[in-house]
Each structure stands twice: as structure tokens, then as C-alpha cells.
Computed example of a mutant assay.
Amino acid sequence: MGVREAGAGSRAAARRAGADVVRALRSRWRTATMAAGWSYPGDWPLAEVDEVCAAVLDTADPAAALYRLGGARAEAGAGLAETLLDLAALHAVLAEPPGSTGIVSPNVDAIPARMMRATALGWGDVLTDQAASCAADNPLTGLATGAYLRTRLREVYAEARTSGRQDHLLVLVSLDLTRTSGWSRVVAMTLLADALREVFDSGQTVASVGPSVAAVLVKKDVRLHRAVLNLRLLTADRLAVDPHVAPAGPVKVWLEPLPATYEEAIELITSLGR
């Protein structure tokens, strides 16, 4: 056998050995994940799984492969908790001594921060893209999204250019969520959303523009000041029923004239959402 043939043979053998190691890791990872309670075994195998196996066995940083795996899990419908449990199974397998065949116990809290961050970011970015492309309202509060409000503002400014006058303004509403914590913040915004929809129930755009701020795009009307007063009273009543959310009030309500241009209006909405 010539030197060239011998070299080619050794490289092929090395590739086969490398592929065997990847398959072994993949098999142990899958077994650990299934034992931990993965819901749909048929959904587990993905091309990104093999990429992660190859990356963690290499000296390269596996963050990029883990990011892609997180995104692929989200696209396949896996929740974040299940995705992180799968990652914990991989970490538990990797922590075992070489050649070990024993049962491992995945522990999400033991995942290194860098691995968890890369996977969670990949999962979250896909969910964010999906939400932005298909949802017009917030599933928790029922308020329209900021993206929908921007669409409505574009239409309002186009209408104003045609008519030569601006007939709309914003009613802005905010709560002080620094005085609440955890789930109480969501409850407070949900109660505010209910009050907003009850007061502004004639086709106005009622949207969330930040964690503690909502906006109503309304036509100028002499009855608007009474509506604002009713909103203050109704929100106070809603918040008072729960001592955990009451500190978020009283609600702050003010009228905001629309800026001269659509671009300035978007800057206003963006600043309020921070």
C-alpha cells in the first residue's frame, strides 16, 4: 500500500471513529432526556442535535450550535422548560466520566450559565419573531401590541395628509409597577386593560406600549375628559380588590397630542415603552 493510500485510510478511520463518538454521545443524551420525561420522543432528533454533539466534543465554543438548537426546539413547539431539561440531560451526560454507562439525573440548576444563555436566547428569539409576525394582541392582557399601534398610527397620519388636519390624539395611561413584584405586575396590567376596554369600547385602538404603559388612539371628542375621569375611577376600583396590586395605583392618565410626523410619533411610543 502506498503512502497516499495509507494516509487516506487513516483519515477515513479517524472520521469513522469521530462519527462513532458523536453517535454514542447522541444516544446517551437521548436516553437521559427520555428518562427525564421528554413529551414527544419522535420530535427529539434534529440536525441541530448532531451539531451540538460535534461542537461539545470539539475544542470550539458550542454557544452557536446551542443557540441554533434552542431555536429549532422552539420551531418544533417545545416549551422553554422542556428545552432546558433536554440541555440539562446533555450537561449531565458530559459530566460523567468517559465510558460511563450509568443513569444520569438532569439538573437544570447545574447547567453552566453560558450554555443556558445561548440555548434560551435561541429559543426566545424564535418565539419573539413568531409573536411579532402573527399576534396583534397580548395574550395575557388582551391589549393590542405596540406593532399594531404603529400600523394604526401610519394609517392615521396618511388620513391626516389627505384631509389636511389631525383628528386623533393619544390617551396615555401608566401604573407604578415598582411597588409590586412578580405575578402581581401582570395582574395589575390585566386589570388596567379591562378598565380601558370598558371605557373605550367604540372601536378605539387600545394598546400596550411598555411593561407599565398603555395607550389609546382616539379621535378628538368633547366627551374625552369625562372618559378619562371614568377611567381613573374604574381603575382605582379594580386595583383596590387585590392588596397585592393596589400599590400600583393610582393610575396616571394624560392626553398627548400627536407629533407633527409619523416618525416622531414612533419615537414617542418607543420612549414610553422603555
Rank of each mutant, 00 (worst) to 15 (best):
L153R: 05
L153Y: 10
L153F: 03
R154P: 03
R154N: 07
R154K: 09
R154W: 13
E155V: 00
E155D: 14
E155H: 14
V156G: 11
V156H: 13
V156A: 15
V156I: 11
Y157V: 02
Y157H: 06
A158C: 03
A158M: 00
A158F: 00
A158E: 14
E159Y: 10
A160N: 05
A160F: 06
A160D: 04
A160K: 02
A160Y: 01
A160E: 11
R161K: 10
T162F: 07
S163E: 14
S163T: 15
S163C: 08
S163P: 03
S163H: 13
S163V: 10
S163A: 14
G164H: 11
G164N: 07
G164R: 07
R165E: 14
R165T: 14
R165W: 13
R165G: 08
Q166C: 12
Q166D: 13
Q166K: 04
D167N: 12
D167H: 10
D167P: 03
D167W: 06
D167C: 09
H168E: 12
H168R: 12
H168L: 06
L169V: 07
L169Q: 15
L169E: 15
L169R: 11
L169F: 10
L170C: 02
L170S: 07
L170G: 08
V171M: 08
L172H: 11
V173K: 02
V173F: 07
V173I: 12
V173P: 12
S174L: 07
S174G: 09
L175E: 03
L175T: 01
L175G: 03
L175R: 00
L175C: 06
L175A: 01
D176S: 04
D176H: 00
D176R: 03
D176P: 04
L177I: 13
L177F: 10
L177K: 05
T178L: 11
T178Y: 11
R179A: 13
R179F: 12
T180H: 07
T180C: 15
S181E: 15
S181Y: 10
S181L: 09
S181H: 12
S181I: 05
S181K: 05
G182D: 01
G182Y: 02
G182R: 00
G182E: 00
G182S: 10
G182C: 09
G182L: 08
W183L: 13
W183T: 03
W183K: 01
S184W: 09
S184T: 02
S184F: 08
S184M: 04
R185W: 03
R185T: 01
R185F: 04
R185D: 01
R185K: 02
V186W: 08
V186E: 05
V187F: 02
V187P: 00
V187E: 14
V187R: 10
V187N: 01
V187L: 14
V187G: 00
